[in-house]
Design a protein around this nucleic acid. Sequence first.
RNA 1: UGGGGGAUCGUCUAAUGGUAGGACAACGGACUCUGACUCCGUUUAUCUAGGUUCGAAUCCUAGUCCCCCAGCCA
Length: 573
Amino acid sequence: MTDAAAPNNFIRQIILNDRAAGKNDGRVATRFPPEPNGYLHLGHAKSICLNFGLAREFAGNCDLRFDDTNPAKEEQEYVDAIKSDVNWLGFEWNNLRHTSDYFEVLYLCAEKLIRDGKAFVCDLSADEVRATRGTLTEPGQNSPYRGRSAEENLDLFRRMRAGEFDDGARTLRAKIDMASGNINMRDPTIYRIRKLTHQNTGDAWKIYPMYDYAHCVSDAVEGITHSLCTLEFEDHRPLYDWFLDQLDVENHAELIEPMRRAGLAGTPSRPQQIEFARGNLDYTVMSKRKLMALVSENLVDGWDDPRMPTLAGVRRRGFPPAAVRAFWERAGVTKQNSVIEFSVLEGSVREVLDASAPRRMAVLDPLKLVITNLDAAHDETIEFANHPKNAELGSRRVPFSRELWIERDDFAEVPPKGFHRLVPNGEVRLRNAGIVRCEEIVRNDDGSIAEVRCTLDPTTRHGMPGADRKVKGTIHWVSAGHAVAAEVRLYDRLFTVADPDDTSDGKTYAEHLNADSKRVVRAWLEPSLADATPESNVQFERLGYFVADRYDHSRATPVFNRTVTLRDSYAVR
RNA sequence: UGGGGGAUCGUCUAAUGGUAGGACAACGGACUCUGACUCCGUUUAUCUAGGUUCGAAUCCUAGUCCCCCAGCCA
């Protein structure tokens, strides 16, 4: 990867300080820990870039770990999609792990907590636990089961594991402080009974650990040094540290014995949790629930709809992975809640594509232009550079003939002020082909324009001395007789308002959907475009960046998606 | 009226007691066989009020506003 040097941020600074202090012997180990319960989106990409980027900068390792402690929500489909998306973004994990790989270790740790009098089996129902938890301003009450002996707790917990009790009948809880101002410390649940088939462990387990318990232990046994997560976990940090303090896995090799047997053992660490702000974008939604709803209610064409902020979506839209990485680098990493303008992302996309995308010509809204002083049989090819600045991208030949397609809005019978294109009796340059003058307008019966008839100034042909003559505008074209028909999908923002989550106007996010976010047109392409490989990016000159659709494009049925328009300083359009 | 965080151009971010800088956006202009790219220029910010200091975005005091937390979700 050729991304610029990593910019500074407070997490990087913490790592720099840790290394200077000799913490973890200077080692840096991070992890990206998604729950496989949905598709990855641009928000996840921030975390991916951060975790993998930091590991790379400090010659450390970054693992991909599926945080799969809740079999009710997790599926193999998501596991596969996540792996594919991380790779697409340009990163390779050190170890691929699942929290469920550590279930035996987690169980051993729980027995240790019980023996140490730090955890107890509670028979309260979920409702009763809620009722005794207290409120934000009032302390909770101790569970009546809090005083059970270690022996009784151990017996009950083993029977929980054995499947003797029904879902919800009992839980294992940490014994901390029901009066804590931090609600996470009020005897939180560590294990619950869930008799479900798990995507990775099948039916081996009847009990499953909770996030707060599993995550810190997983980090520690995996040897993670810096555990990065988002802001809402800030007040979980005391609990994260509490579990690690009680367990001290670094000095209790017996706890990770199951990993050794499974060939997964490394050197445990004492990880540090650091929280950063999520990255939000305007004109979109990023919550898993809402993305799920867009898909299930058929408001979009699936998880990989090019309008979706999912990585599968932006990939299909044609956003290069390097642009996504550059975007998050521009956005920075802080603890401030923020909403980044979509234009910043588009800026990154244009920057990458301007440098790399070959140029082509395509007409999306065709108007026939006939060159009357060219023979009907005229048939030649003109050489075009594929890129205005990068000769390494080579050139191609484009057929040119008497009848062309031009863009309907490149001709105006009554031109608005500042119009630089073709007008009656006016001149315009056909890209690389010479200057034409409009002599005549041919109309349909209803008065609409059927075609414009022009003469080509032969002294201005490409390669001729007169080719340097100045005219106000240059327009693109394709030869009507050679053009390839294509389906072109024009995408725009999915929502009409910057903050679709804002319901203060009484409308839900679904009511802010942009009805015009997808337009499909039949376009004419220069012939070389039929040979584009799926997912290749091109610039349709003067129109924007487009990508050959990952799934639907073929030589026989070309399909292109508009990734982003070109910047356009001609306001009157 | 509990606990935990955060406030810098329109947006995102930098400045670690010493010139408030950058990116995106916007607006001018130059260039141009893409109204693109590139280049030049312009506009716009330290939440408020006090205090410490030669000097404060940064330190202190008091406020204000915003976000998160009461799952057997993560």
